[in-house]
Structure formats: structure tokens, C-alpha cells
Amino acid sequence: MIRLHNVAKVYDGGVVAVQEVSMDVRKGEFVFLVGPSGSGKSTLIRMCLREEKATRGKIWVAGKDITKLPTWRVPYLRRTVGTIFQDFKLLPTKTVAENVAFALKVTGCPRSIVRRQVNTVLELVGLSAKTDRYPRQLSGGEQQRVSIARAFVNRPPILLADEPTGNLDPATSVGIMRLLDRINRTGTTVMMATHDFAIVDAMRRRVVQLDRGRVVRDQSGSGYESSDET
């Protein structure tokens, strides 16, 4: 589903954020990206969304080489990849339902289907009672649920999350992780960057650890810190 081959990213000004990264994430996998601050986790995720272009190497997302993708095709890439961020990135002037519906509207989805899908997904994340609220009227955990609903509403095969629990307390984080786990169990591939060792340790999934832009560990069923069992 996501394949990186010898990928490097050098930002303008010469900062080397990622180098020689190769990895292969198969369909339905759940991968944690861990590593110290500045190790290149966000850069990796942004390259998979074509928010940044890889300086070297190749990246395949859902079977397509996105390093060669023409700019006008980028929106189509992003419709096959749901995204969740630490700061939620909700549209402040739209209600919960409108925010979720937006991800479908951009695909030209007819209104009747939009309404049905939005209702289903909001039910899934437990926000059916708050569809008409604005983001500022919600707690952080609720806002993150909205953004998960938006990421998932058009059933993308891939979900990318950059520190989705970074702004939430531990109890709320557990709720968010449960949601992501459920989504993963429907067959969606999930890649999530995080600093939250409690979560990584509890879930015991594949962990890819970065350090100064390089992969220093890639271990299945692992925890936040390196473990000897394989």
C-alpha cells in the first residue's frame, strides 16, 4: 500500500530531514512511526501526501508512483488517503456535519449519498448528537473524532495520522486509538507518527523508528522502545 525506496528529503537551506528510507507497508497493516523530535516523521508523512516532494527516491501510494504524479493529479491522491493531524485541521466556519461532508463534496458526490455517508460515519465516531456544532464548540477529543470521521468518510484504503493524540489527555487518547484500531480492522492501512509510548506499548503493532532521518528499527508487534523479542 505504501512503499518507499531510498527516499531522501533535503529542505531548502540544506536541512536533511530524511535519508535512505526504504520500507514497505502492506494492505491492512498498522504502523507506528516513532523517534525523537526532528527525526523526520512528519516529513515522511507529508511526502506520502505530496505536501512535500521527495528529493530522491521513489514513493508508491496505493500502487502509484507519487514522485512522478503531475500536480493536477495530487487531489486524487489525497482522496485515497485519509489524514489526521495533531491540530485537527477542521474548517472553523463549517459545522461538524459540513466538515465531514466536505471530503465527499470535493469528489463531486451527490447530495443524498453525502448525507447518508456523513450520518453513518458520525454515528461511528459517536458524534451523532453534535452534527450541527461548530469546531470551537467541541472538546479536543471531539474535534479529533470529527477529523477522523472526515478522513474515513469516503472509505480511503490508507489513513495517515501525524500525532493524532498529541493534544489530548491519556483517557481521550485511548478513545481515539480505539477508533483508529476499529478503522484498521476494516482493512484500512494506517500509518501513525507518535511520541505516545503508552499507546505504542499497549497496541503492540509494527514500529518503525527514525533517528536523524534514517530508519533505525523496523519491528513487528513491538513497543516504543526497542525489544529483543521478534
Binding site: L49, P75, L77, R78, L91, P92, F102, T107
Partner: peptide, 12 residues
């Protein structure tokens, strides 16, 4: 908002 819209897959 425009940046968010693009991230969600809005075309130009």
C-alpha cells in the same frame, strides 16, 4: 482554510 481543503483532496 484553503490549505485544509487541499489536504482533504479539493481540486484547484
Amino acid at each position: 482554510e484553503i490549505a485544509i481543503m487541499k489536504l482533504v483532496g479539493a481540486g484547484n
